[in-house]
């Protein structure tokens, strides 16, 4: 554990809880992509199956359980409790275009051919692109609520902080996992356009709207 990893995890946690609290408080999931949330639920489920097979630390296990519960809680709010507020007309990204290639890739580029390893790799590839339906939705509606922008910023920062963590770990522990590093870089790049808008608009108190 290092400071970059810890800040990354906290940023990730903040993002997930921010989204959950926003939906709960406003009793609405307008502007949120249910498809991205489905993808994140698949990501956490396939990655954290190791809760049953390997123990790292109390911290890791608790975080995994929180991520899983918050993710399924978000799906429950979006597709059941506040379903009428779900803006499905604008959530039109075809997620099979992400689910299938990520699955194929996880069989092609993987460290070892075991069920857990392939599922873990799949979760890494899918996470890299899971935000695309949400970014697509923002581009279709041309705007995002401020809380949604904070959510996206925290979620994007998490992987960027993990990149610093991997650099740090490479020098201090000789740790190098190219699958997760390259996927993490792709994931962070997807947010770059959004980061720019966030810094130039939202941080100056303006609403995020596209020209």
């Amino acid at each position: 554990m290092n400071i970059f990893r810890l800040c990354g995890d906290l940023s990730h946690l903040l993002a997930i809880l921010l989204l959950l609290v926003k939906i709960w408080k406003t009793r609405s999931c307008a502007g949120i992509s249910g498809k991205s949330q489905i993808l994140f639920a698949i990501v956490y489920t396939t990655r954290y199956l190791d809760l049953f097979t390997s123990f790292v630390s109390i911290y890791n296990s608790v975080m995994k359980i929180v991520f899983l519960s918050a993710s399924y809680g978000t799906l429950y709010l979006m597709f059941y409790k506040f379903k009428p507020t779900y803006d499905h007309n604008h959530d039109s990204f075809r997620i099979l275009y992400l689910i299938v290639p990520a699955l194929v890739l996880s069989f092609v580029i993987v460290h070892a051919y075991t069920l857990m390893e392939v599922l873990w790799t799949y979760s890494i590839y899918l996470e890299a692109v899971a935000i695309m339906p949400q970014l697509f939705m923002v581009s279709r509606t041309g705007e995002a609520e401020t809380i949604t922008s904070h959510y996206l910023f925290a979620l994007g920062s998490y992987r960027a902080l993990y990149i610093l963590n991997w650099i740090y770990r490479y020098y201090t522990e000789d740790f190098l996992d190219l699958i997760v590093i390259i996927a993490g870089i792709v994931q962070t790049i997807l947010y770059c356009d959004f980061f720019y808008l966030y810094i130039t608009k939202v941080l100056k108190g303006k609403r995020l709207s596209l020209p």
């Binding site: 630390s57 890791n60 490479y170 000789d174 190098l176 997760v180």
Partner: peptide, 10 residues
């Protein structure tokens, strides 16, 4: 790099 047995990241 080290082989990464037991993934310790989230």
């Amino acid at each position: 790099g080290k082989p990464k047995e037991g993934k310790d990241e989230l």
